[in-house]
Simulated assay, not measured.
Amino acid sequence: MKRAFLLILILYCSSVLAQAPANLGQAKSVANQSNKPILLEFFQPDCEFCQLAAQDFANNDTIKTLLKSVVYYPMDVNLAEGESLSTSYYVENTFPVFALCDSAGEIISHWTGYINVSLFERSLKEALSNPITIKSRYEMLGSSPTPDNIITLAKYNNEIGENVKAAELYRRAEGFQKGSDYLFKIFENMADATWKGKSSFKQFLQSADDVLAAKSGNITNVTGVGIIVTRVARKVGRTDEIDKYLQPGIDITGNKEDKRSKDLHTTLIADQALYVKKDTAGAISIKKESLGSDWENIPQKFYSFAKWCLERNIDLDEAENFASKAIEGSTEGKFRASILVTLADIYKARGKNTEAINTMELAILQDPQNSYYKTKLTEIQTKQGVK
């Protein structure tokens, strides 16, 4: 199946590139002459979602018609121009990346990923419906700000990872139209910014306080605050401050009978046991009970338990055993690679750096195009003193 997708991608790209511009300069020239915007696509040949996009682009009439309204220019990020333009167009480690641009190459809209025809159609049509460049929108922001323009810029900054800017823009939008949804978007962006070290934990907690103070009764928002605050607090070593953010989620899900609410409730009370009550054994017991009977023999469940332990740096001996067991029953390729990376992280957390290096090398053999894995391997090797 993987070979079939790869063949489709090769044949499709060969066909498209035969008609497509030879480089971005030529794409700009064609766009200028035809009065059409440019649609850039950055792809990895071995990316399964890029392969899915290639298959749909080759066979789906809706997408074929849509592409007639743009100058379509796909770029392999492993080749010279694709690699050199990746930074300018905010391409990181997730593919494919699309950028709708004007004839000068200025970004109009930017989105990451491909799932299906309808979502791609919606993204492209939305971008084409109001083809104002981001540069122009910033100019308008100073002279005549509108809610629509502010929200568009906020979404764009969120998409390219400029989370502090995104949060600031959502705050401006909140001034036009009060609503807890904006407050939660501010909170999510402050979480990402704090995770990256671009904002303080204090500022992040203030955004969490704002969501809870709104008293929206939205289960997703209230439980999301507890779960995300805990995750960020673990990273920065501030789990002593999380109880006030866990309890509202525990309360709002306590009497719910649907599976999703029960799962959220379990996550929150387990973390409360671990970080607030300092009861590691109790937290592990809560988690295991939530997995149901015979969970030790169900790969999806015992692997999820291994990851849960790794995230919290507890019961790593058992986590190692279950991650190793999950590898034995996995299929080769990207999924096995992801399990191997989990096992490598467990080894690293236990100080077993040689085993971590060997396991990361195995993961890369399973998913050789994954640059993130190569970066992780280099980090572990550097710590171990391996060149």
Rank of each mutant, 00 (worst) to 15 (best):
I63N: 09
S216A: 08
N93S: 13
L153E: 03
G161A: 02
D258L: 07
A31Q: 05
G351M: 10
N23C: 00
K374E: 12
I286N: 03
A173H: 09
A193W: 01
F322S: 05
K307S: 12
E296D: 13
Y156G: 06
Q206S: 08
K68H: 12
K376T: 00
L40W: 01
E379V: 06
V91F: 02
L128T: 06
T375V: 04
K196M: 12
M360F: 09
S338T: 14
S103H: 07
Q203N: 11
M190Q: 14
L274V: 10
Y12D: 12
A363W: 00
E320D: 05
V225C: 09
K348E: 15
L52T: 11
I160P: 05
T133R: 04
S200G: 07
L40H: 01
G82P: 04
N149Q: 13
K178G: 05
Q44D: 10
A27S: 04
F176G: 04
N59P: 00
Y347I: 09
I339L: 12
T280K: 15
Q384Y: 09
A58S: 12
T378S: 10
T220R: 15
A349Y: 08
T223W: 04
C47E: 06
Y182N: 15
T359I: 08
I364S: 07
N221E: 15
A191I: 04
I250V: 14
K165S: 10
G82I: 01
P45K: 06
P145A: 07
K185S: 11
L291V: 05
E318M: 10
A27F: 01
A167M: 06
A233E: 08
S290Y: 05
S103N: 12
K288D: 09
V70M: 05
L377I: 03
N130H: 11
Y347R: 09
I252Y: 02
N130Q: 14
V222L: 09
C101M: 06
T375M: 11
T65K: 15
F42D: 01
G385F: 06
D240T: 11
K256W: 02
G329T: 15
T194I: 15
Y138W: 12
D315F: 00
K259F: 00
P37A: 08
F57P: 00
F305A: 02
T62S: 12
S216D: 15
G385A: 10
K278Q: 15
V30H: 10
D56F: 08
K348T: 02
Q55N: 13
S88Y: 03
H110Y: 09
A233W: 02
T359M: 13
L52D: 15
I228M: 15
M1Q: 13
V222F: 03
T230P: 04
S304I: 08
R350E: 11
K202A: 14
G333C: 06
A154W: 03
Q44G: 05
Q384T: 12
T382Y: 14
L183R: 08
G226S: 07
I364H: 08
D181Q: 12
K215G: 03
E126N: 14
N23I: 02
F43V: 07
M190W: 04
N59I: 01
I314Y: 07
F184S: 07
D209A: 09
L7Q: 14
A27I: 01
L6D: 10
R122M: 09
